[in-house]
Structures are given as C-alpha cells and as structure tokens.
Design a protein around this nucleic acid. Structure first.
Length: 574
DNA sequence: GCCGTTTTCGGCCCGACTGTTTTCAGTCG
C-alpha cells in the first residue's frame, strides 16, 4: 500500500463517521490521513521501524489500523463502516450544499439511494415537501447536482493559474486595486485545484463585487453577500471573492491561503497564548485589543513565528520547523538557470532545435537540454543510435548559430526497457552531454520488478537523471508501484539525479516524493518535458513543486551555471 | 480518536451566507 492509499482509507472513514453524526473523530482521521499523505518515508517502512506511531495525529488506534492496512492491504473497520452505510449516502453528500445532515434526511425520509433517484425526486417536487425544506432548497439541490455533473475533475495547477491571473488582471483593469491576491490552494501551489480564491483589500466592497460578477467568463452567480461572492465560470470552475478592509488584509491573506489544517494549528497556538486569530486579525482574548492584521508577516510574528512560505502550509511539520528556526530557504524562480528536458521535431516535439535554443534565450535561460526519445518508443518517432549521433552535431551547430549565449546540451531521454537495460548502446550514451532515462512501457509491473528495473538503469553508470520516475499522469494513470526509498538509495550511491517533470499533468516526482528524495540525499533536476515552445513556460510548475517538497537552491542542479552543470553531468563518465 | 508549560479527562478553529426560521442550524472554506 502506498501512502496515498492509506490516506484514502482514512479519508473515507472520516466521511462515513461524519455522516453518522459523530463529532471530532472525522477531524482526527483527516488529520492522520493528511499527515500520511505528506510523509517523507514509505508508510510500510515506517511500520517496519515502528516510527509510524510518531506521525502527528496517529495514536494507538490509528497506528493499529495502519499496521493492518500494510499487512493485509485492507481494513476490517472500513469494511464494516461501508456495510452499515446506506447505499448512495456518500454520493449524495458529494453534492455541493448537501452535508451529512441533509443527506441523511434525504435518504431516510425520501428513500432515495442514488444521485439519480435524488434528482428524480427533486424534479418531481418531492424534496420541497420535506419538513425544514422549501422551494429554494430544492432548487439548490438540483443546481448542485448539475454542478457535480458538469464539473468533472479538478483542474491542474497549470490550467488554473493562468485563469486566475487573467481574472485578477481583469479586476485590476476595472478598478484601481493595490491589495489583491490569489490565495487558497492556488497560492500554495497544489497540483490540482478545486476552486480559486481571490482576496481584495478595499473599502468600497460593492464596486468590487459588481466588477467580479460582471466578468465575461462568469456563467452563474452562486452566492453574493456584502463581503463574500462565489461564481461559476464557463467550464465549471468556481471562483470565490472575499473583500476585507485594508487593515485586515494580512490576516485575511493568511486565513484564506490555508491550508485548513495549517490554520487550525495556527489558531490553537493563538489560544495557548491567550489570543484569537481570525481573518480580521490577531486579538487578545480578554481585551479584544488588535495586535496584528494588516500584514501577513505581522500575523505570524504575533504568534512568535517567522513568516512561512505558502507552499509549506500543509501541517507537514512547517510550524515545528518555524519554531526551531529550521525552515528551509526555498528554491526561488530566479535561482533556476535553464531547462533540462525538451523535445524537438527530431522525435515527437513540434519545433526545430534552432527555435528551441532561441526561445530559451528569450526566456533568459543560460542553458537548455535537447532530450529526444529513443528508438524503441517508435510511436514518438524515437531516434536510432545513428540519428542520436547526427543530432549531437545538429545541437552543436545550433548553439554556434544562436545569438543569446545559451548553452545547448545534447541529450537524450533514453527508454528504460523492461529488463532495466537502456535503449541506446553505451558508446552512444557516452557522446551525450546529458542522459535522462525514463520508463514508457510495461508500467504495471510488480513493485519488486519495477524497483529492480529502475535500480538496474541507475547502476548502469550510463545515465544522469531518472525522468518522471513514477510515471503517473494526474487523474488518469496511477504512479507505478516502486519502492522509492530503494531507488533513492541507489541514486545517491551512484550520483544519479531524480527529475521533477514540470508538465502540468505529471509533476513527477511530486511534492512529498521530492522531500523524500532530499532526505535520502538525492539531487534533483527540473525539466519541462516541453513538446512545443509554449510548454517551456511550464518550468514554473516544476519550481513550485520543488518548493512544496521543501527543496533549496542547493538541492537542484538547474541552479548552477552551465559550466558547473556540465561538470556534474560529465561526472558519470569519470 | 488525539493530545497535554491549564489537562491522562475533557476539550477539540472561526466566521459568512442561506433558507426556513421566529432565533438558528446546516454548509462551506
């Protein structure tokens, strides 16, 4: 069982307990689930060493359940909970505005047992006749079901960020705003986004609300009050606007950035210090005197903490680290000097090497690596050994022709074949400046086999980087079953690096795995996996992922000057 | 179910908005 699988079990338990009207336990299970998700070791090895009991939020009862999950792959307790849950309840609770109480009434008093039946009942006007229900509630339920049907998956960070930035730009064009930020999971850089939160500090709330709801991409205004408005954008994406007085802006920014779990800890710290923390500021409980609120820095300072970067605010040990003065100095976008994974028209990319080098120069890169696919990936027009050698010459010439002073590395994204061997002979690999090795086939191997396959590639001594190490595609393909700690150990011993693939639907390694790699002493690289020039912009998402993985400048190869990058890469042949 | 410079028992973050209400519960973030 992977950490995500164990977390999913506890999230489901929390949902069912909540449905049963049980208080506090759901939070306890959610806290444990979230901690396990963020864990920087494999849960199985934590159990093996007995350290799973030390995970925050994991006590005696949950520890036992983790052991059972790791040992048997399933959990009796969850099976029992499922069995006693009326069918359709969880599904019905997933409708916006239907929580545990409402869902229970619908199932019991109306006798519906699926979303479809609920919709039918609402359309037939049966819902509004229930005690405590009315016309508006029935409409809301129908609209909620419609939302659910049209919404589909969460958006990738790479999709949502440009939409949010366009919205902010529009608002700033309508009204002169100096205090406006995107907050929520977007500001924290989560890999997928449920909805976007925009915060505005201004004294004329109605004008901002009007501008917000009049945006051309707004399909529907869901709620609109004095300080809070929610709309649905074309395509089903929800956007929330909060307006606060300027003097509360920092507190609101902190509050609406979240995560919820991080904020709960912040407020508990406040309580211990006799303070009340809300979106308006930090107040003394007794006198209600305001201690902070206009800046986010000030809020943390009032609690005796340094400012914590949004990407770390996940209740993953950041508050502890802050108290100890041990927060990492995170990688900054300006630290990153180039892109280490780009495809050209030689394989399945859209652009010429010349155009890629020029585009990299225009973006201010100091280097770019051309890394096309190899022969066995015929679907992507993979290159034969002869073509690889020819391409090396082509890259050298493109670099000479270029005017931006960009160093162009001749590389390859060589396939790791099923037996762990590489898709190009050593004689060719040794001519290359950079060798990324990736798995593109037979992704569903058994964990032992897949781990051995990656370790064999790492131990070959012919590669620099493992590309998109888990092979996951967010929302579509699960990560391969791999013992990542074994892979990282082998990588450290052999001086091989792990890629953060910045493509929006990959982000692989993901945040928690970056942290795991770092803890295992492995160096990381960032590559866009660009297949066209506009994909070169994806570098940002790799940087955000690195930050969420607690990575510092010194953990990432891309922060070095070209000469030093080259020296490090040449190291594999020494 | 977890947790402890106030606690090993008794707490557990905080406020906006809505709808169906005569004063508040449910939901959300």
């Amino acid at each position: 069982m992977r950490n995500e699988d164990v977390a999913a079990v506890f999230y489901e338990i929390a949902d069912i307990l909540e449905l049963q009207g049980i208080a506090f336990k759901p939070q306890a299970y959610r806290r444990a689930a979230s901690a396990i998700e963020q864990l920087d070791v494999e849960i199985a090895s934590a159990v093996a060493s007995g350290t799973h009991r030390e995970i925050p939020g994991v006590g005696e009862a949950i520890a036992k359940k983790i052991e059972e999950l790791v040992r048997t792959g399933s959990l009796d307790y969850l099976e029992r909970l499922r069995a006693e849950t009326p069918p359709g309840l969880l599904e019905i609770m997933s409708v916006p505005d239907i929580g545990p109480k409402t869902a229970m009434i619908l199932v019991h008093d109306l006798g519906v047992s699926s979303l479809g039946e609920l919709k039918e009942a609402a359309l037939a006007g049966k819902v509004k006749k229930l005690k405590g229900f009315g016309e508006r509630t029935e409409e809301r339920i129908l609209s909620g079901i419609k939302t659910l049907e049209s919404k589909g998956r969460r958006a990738f960070l790479g999709e949502a960020l440009p939409v949010a930035r366009a919205y902010v730009e529009y608002l700033m064009g309508r009204i002169r705003l100096d205090l406006i930020d995107v907050c929520g999971s977007l500001r924290r850089g989560k890999e997928t986004i449920g909805d976007m939160d925009i915060l505005v500090g201004w004294d004329n709330a109605p004008a901002v609300t009007d501008a917000f709801t009049q945006y051309e991409r707004v399909d529907e205004v869901i709620v609109s009050g004095a300080t809070k408005t929610s709309v649905r954008l074309a395509g089903g994406f929800q956007a929330d606007l909060r307006i606060v007085e300027r003097s509360s802006y920092g507190a609101a920014l902190q509050y609406f950035t979240g995560s919820k779990e991080h904020n709960v800890l912040i407020r508990k710290m406040g309580i211990e210090k006799g303070l009340k923390v809300n979106e308006y500021g930090v107040f003394e409980r007794d006198s209600n005197r305001k201690l902070a609120g206009d800046t986010e820095d000030g809020v943390y300072e009032a609690l005796g903490l340094p400012w914590i970067p949004p990407e770390l605010r996940e209740d993953a040990g950041e508050i502890d680290a802050a108290l100890r003065g041990a927060l990492p100095t995170l990688l900054e976008p300006s630290d990153v000097k180039g892109d280490l994974h780009v495809h050209s028209e030689w394989s399945d990319g859209a652009d010429s090497i010349d155009d890629i080098v020029s585009a990299a120069a225009a973006k201010g890169h100091k280097f770019v690596a051309i890394t096309d696919h190899t022969q066995s990936l015929s679907i992507a027009n993979g290159l034969s050994p002869e073509k690889v050698l020819a391409q090396i010459e082509a890259v050298r010439k493109a670099e000479e022709r270029s005017e931006g002073g960009v160093r162009a590395f001749a590389g390859s994204e060589v396939d790791i074949l099923a037996d762990g061997s590489l898709d190009l002979p050593p004689s060719v690999l040794r001519e290359l400046d950079v060798v990324i090795a990736s798995v593109h086939s037979r992704l569903k191997m058994e964990p032992k086999e897949m781990t051995a396959r990656l370790v064999a590639a790492i131990e070959s001594g012919e590669i620099d980087i493992v590309g998109h190490p888990t092979g996951r595609i967010i929302g579509r393909r699960d990560p391969a079953s791999i013992d990542l700690e074994k892979v990282f150990e082998s990588a450290r011993e052999n001086g091989v690096m792990m890629e953060i693939n910045a493509f929006p639907d990959r982000l692989d390694l993901r945040d928690a795995h970056c942290r795991m790699a770092k803890d295992n002493g492995v160096m990381m690289t960032i590559g866009t996996d660009a297949h066209s020039l506009r994909h070169l912009d994806y570098l940002e998402f790799g940087i955000i992922t690195a930050r969420r993985g607690w990575l510092e400048k010194s953990d990432v190869l891309n922060t070095l000057d070209p000469a030093k990058v080259e020296k490090k890469l040449r190291g594999r042949r020494a």
